[in-house]
Amino acid sequence: MSKKHPWVNVLFLAPVTLAFVLVIIVPFFLGIYYSFTDFNGVRSHLTLVGLANYRVMFNDPIFLHSFLLTLQYTAINIVSVNVVAFLLSLLVTSDLPGRNFLRAGFFVPNLIGGLVLGYIWQFVFNSALLDMGRNLGISWLSQSLIGNKNTVIWAMSFVNTWQYAGYIMMIYVAAIQGIPANLMEAASVDGATYPQRVFKVLIPMMASAFTVTLFLTLTNSFKQYDLNYSLTSGGPAALFMGKASKASQLLAMNIYNTAIAAKRWGDGQARAVMFFLILVIFSLVQVWLNKRKEVEM
């Protein structure tokens, strides 16, 4: 068939492939090239500087700080989003009345972009919760959780969990509904308690769903920018290895600030390349670990 219609092939395939190549592939390699230059956004100014940008990056404690914060944020989210989502999925697949309504409700935060949600939660943390803390005399609420360098990452993870758990829950719900009912019945006839049934039957049967959800929570947390920008803008100030740093500046924001705000495009791009490598390695390891578990089942 291909030989008969070479023009149709080209005509039909060209638009999507061209856009894909021009928007992702070319900039991807152009970016690797920029990371070896002193590019600053002005085109005439561009010389190769070898590994200088990478050296600057590795010697910059603020980049290391951003990296560690991103790790912390990702680790908290992987646990909290998945635990909350899994519990919610058990709840909305049980026989309680109104479960479809609840499902939809838990899903709603996911429809709204992180940028708008960030402003809403900024109000929650900086105004509503402070007021509640004052009225109820709860001392740990009397200062803003996003204004404190020790709690800000946790607060952001809390918002991320609220935003993302409903979505992950839906994936678990689909997985639970795909499990043959007689398995759970057989286990219960054999005298397994509810927790035993969940841990020994349900979770092993859902192994492939966990591969997906862990991948999604990992990559999503790692790439976080919008919420970070509108909720905290990277603040508050913090000290890291004796240098003035920011307590919630995640990697994506570090890249943006280095490249765009500080006009060190080449420098920022070196960080972006590093960011890409770390993300790819992490996701490969995660998928490999999960797939191994799937096979064992």
């Binding site: 991807f28 152009l30 970016g31 765009i260 791009q269 960011f275």
Partner: peptide
């Protein structure tokens, strides 16, 4: 490929 990697170029 995350957007952050290609946004600058």
């Amino acid at each position: 490929v995350p957007f952050q990697v290609v946004m600058i170029p």
